[in-house]
Design a protein around this nucleic acid. Structure first.
Lengths: 206, 206
DNA sequence: CTATTAAAATACCGAACCGTATTTTATTTA
DNA sequence: TAAATAAAATACGGTTCGGTATTTTAATAG
């Protein structure tokens, strides 16, 4: 056993709890006192283990991205699923909360990308980078779709990637507006209808 | 002339200035001190003329809706333009800032609908109501489109309305992510492609 | 010029905020 | 037990916040 007084709370657990409350309440509306009660760790302990509020937020952001945000996006790029199905999965990935109980609704990144106009430049940049990362994942998938014939060559895949990156915000916003899960799924189906009819079948292009 | 010391600042001008900074920075990141310097009106004057911070925000919200938010939505419902064109106009209406100089980017309502999980119930409700209002305007337009044959009867116009209401957030978010105006317009064109092809002519673009 | 009115300007208050210095407590080593 | 270590718990400091009480200033009315 280590030397001094034993830890009451594993810093990793604390970070996870911090992520959840930051996800739920956002950066501005979460105080250090909130983080203290959410984590069960006293303030000096938080600073010693996780740093100041900005650092905690950034660590929470990374944790979210690694454990929650990135997987569906990586699947999007790597999975052999057909285009439309992989996009469906990716978009539904924004709705963790409503299905898997307990988790906050919407996307942590999107939710905090608003109301950040005067945020610390570091945080602003970190959020923008993650948004770009998601957009690029879509782009990558569309490039593959193009070469594999899932999309006509004439497609403006850059615009398509921007569009789908934006759908994360669309879905998050309507989730916060109180739509039910099935309504949100219908929204997503509408988004998917911007794609050409499922098997594009050769050169049907106009 | 009235009795006492003359006003330095017209309360209407102050409200307009307050709206702009609240739009730009959001509720949480705008302090009363910010409102003081933005309006040029000292704090006690603000309270006397516009009320406390919540009241000012609500008044700003109403002003935004009346002067900026509602017009393109009303046009959507009332104008005789064909469906797709009226939707295009409505969605582009979210991008005031980038075209008409000076105005903040994105939609005031959308920008503040995030990070409000613990906001005062009043404000939360006011924001939700405005979001619903917009969604209903889309719905109204789609109902008309259905009866006028602009949409097939089989269309799920409720889902379509949710989708387009969500596009306000999509566009706002990508605007904040730094997309150019033409990129944003392309995004909007992609959104519009969920509609059934009207008489096959060349794609409109701006 | 004096009184009155109404707004501006200043100064102030208590609470909440982020962050830290200090003390207590629990454990291991000697 | 006593010294040493490391974490928890408490208390505190400076700042900013939303909101208000108080004073000063600029105008009109008599």
């Amino acid at each position: 056993m280590p030397r001094g007084r034993p830890r009451k709370i594993d810093p990793n657990d604390a970070l996870k709890a911090a992520m959840n409350i930051l996800w739920e309440r956002g950066y501005d509306r979460t105080s250090m006192a909130d983080l203290v009660s959410a984590t069960g760790m006293a303030k000096p302990g938080l600073y010693a283990n996780l740093g100041d509020k900005d650092e905690i937020f950034q660590k929470a952001l990374r944790l979210y991205q690694e454990e929650i945000g990135a997987p569906p996006i990586n699947d999007l790029v790597t999975s052999p699923e057909p285009l439309k199905q992989s996009l469906r999965t990716a978009l539904r990935g924004v709705l963790h909360a409503k299905e898997g109980s307990g988790l906050p609704e919407g996307c942590f990144i999107v939710n905090n990308s608003f109301a950040c106009s005067a945020q610390s430049q570091q945080l602003k940049q970190a959020l923008q980078d993650l948004n770009v990362e998601r957009r690029d994942a879509f782009l990558l998938r569309f490039r593959r779709a193009e070469t594999e014939g899932e999309l006509p060559d004439s497609t403006d895949i850059k615009a398509l990637a921007d569009f789908f990156a934006g759908q994360a915000a669309a879905v998050s916003s309507m989730a916060q507006a109180g739509l039910s899960l099935t309504e949100l799924h219908k929204m997503i189906e509408v988004s998917l209808s911007v794609l050409p009819e499922d098997p594009p079948r050769g050169g049907a292009q106009g």
